[in-house]
């Protein structure tokens, strides 16, 4: 149910043609207007303004379409993701997708993971673990306590 105030607001804003009213309220407004016969005069006034406004014409814009079609369009520059996508899924002249490309891309994180893993392992070998000579040296200095069972 629309209130009388809401109906007045709708007439004030959208005028007397219910087709211009918000679609969600249109049907309900039609029914509610019957409950407020005094608003029909408001509606008629609004329709008079609508009709007056409708006298306004615009030029025919002859030649506009040709002008818009003739304007030089800059070559389209695809974004980086778009270009990567095109490269990945590019079709050969034979019409077959080059599946090695996505496969190669999928291998990149795998290779990266292997490389990082190997690097960490090498770091552990060189930095954390002491050679026998180093161990004896540090034991002599008393820095490393001999493990007692």
């Amino acid at each position: 149910m629309l209130s009388r105030d809401r109906l007045i607001s709708l007439i004030d804003a959208y005028g007397g043609d219910l087709q211009r009213w918000p679609a969600a309220e249109r049907e309900l407004a039609k029914q509610c207007l019957d409950n407020y016969p005094e608003l029909l005069a408001e509606l008629k006034n609004a329709q008079a303004l609508d009709s007056w406004l409708s006298d306004s014409q615009t030029p025919a814009f002859a030649g506009l379409e040709a002008r818009l079609l003739a304007q030089p369009l800059p070559p389209r520059r695809a974004g980086i993701l778009e270009r990567v996508g095109h490269w990945l899924m590019a079709d050969t002249s034979a019409g077959a997708t080059q599946w090695w490309r996505p496969a190669a891309l999928a291998c990149i994180p795998l290779m990266l993971g292997l490389y990082v893993g190997l690097q960490l392992n090498m770091d552990n070998d060189t930095n954390t673990w002491l050679t026998t000579d180093e161990e004896l040296y540090w034991m002599a200095l008393g820095e490393i306590a001999e493990e007692t069972p």
Partner: peptide, 26 residues
């Protein structure tokens, strides 16, 4: 095309400017 030019014309009140706006819009 014409819809946009008509909007620009009603807002600016000038056909040449409205066509320029339509061209830039497209």
């Amino acid at each position: 095309g014409r819809l946009i030019a008509a909007y620009a014309y009603r807002l600016l009140g000038n056909q040449a400017e409205a066509e320029d706006v339509a061209q830039e819009t497209f």
